[in-house]
């Protein structure tokens, strides 16, 4: 479930979903519903896959939507259906060279969020698609991804 909210010069998206994966999928739908008014009449004849890594869920949501925006701007791809898999990975960052550990400390572990996404859609067709406003970018201003007792909530502001 998603809705837009107002921000003077820009446009906010508020997305709610039962699972985190669904939250990301719905966020993608919300973005395309802004970009192309009749996006849900798009055929699912083209397929793209993406793999993204980020340090937090907020950054990952930003990157996911930004990548979709680039696919739209550069490859003219209108997304219609999205499938997202998410995973938290623990990275072992290589430690210092042998003999230096006493000075530089032990190897460190870092966590990162990984997204694997598939997008089905069709090439933008000016005769069929009705364009919405130009979205310049996905901002970090007021960006949130939060867990609630009943599911997940995200808010993101688009620069128009």
């Amino acid at each position: 479930m998603y809705e837009t909210f107002e921000h003077t010069a820009d446009l906010g998206l508020r997305i709610q979903a039962e699972s985190l994966e669904r939250l990301f999928e719905e966020a993608a739908e919300a973005l395309f519903s802004v970009l192309v008014v009749n996006w849900n009449q798009t055929a699912t004849v083209q397929q793209e896959t993406l793999r993204l890594e980020a340090e937090s869920l907020e950054d990952l949501l930003h990157d996911w939507l930004s990548e979709l925006l680039v696919l739209f701007a550069l490859r003219k791809l209108v997304g219609r259906r999205f499938e997202v898999r998410l995973e938290r990975q623990t990275l072992q960052v290589a430690g210092p060279p042998e003999g230096m550990a006493s000075i530089m400390g032990p190897p460190i572990q870092m966590e990162q969020e990984v997204l694997e996404g598939t997008i089905w859609g069709d090439r933008l067709d000016p005769d069929q698609h009705q364009l919405g406003p130009e979205v310049k970018a996905v901002t970090y201003h007021g960006l949130r991804v939060e867990k609630h007792p009943t599911g997940w909530l995200a808010e993101v502001i688009l620069d128009l």
């Binding site: 003077t8 820009d10 201003h141």
Partner: peptide
């Protein structure tokens, strides 16, 4: 001036 993201416009 109006409300922007980060910096005001």
């Amino acid at each position: 001036i109006h409300w922007g993201y980060g910096f005001c416009i």
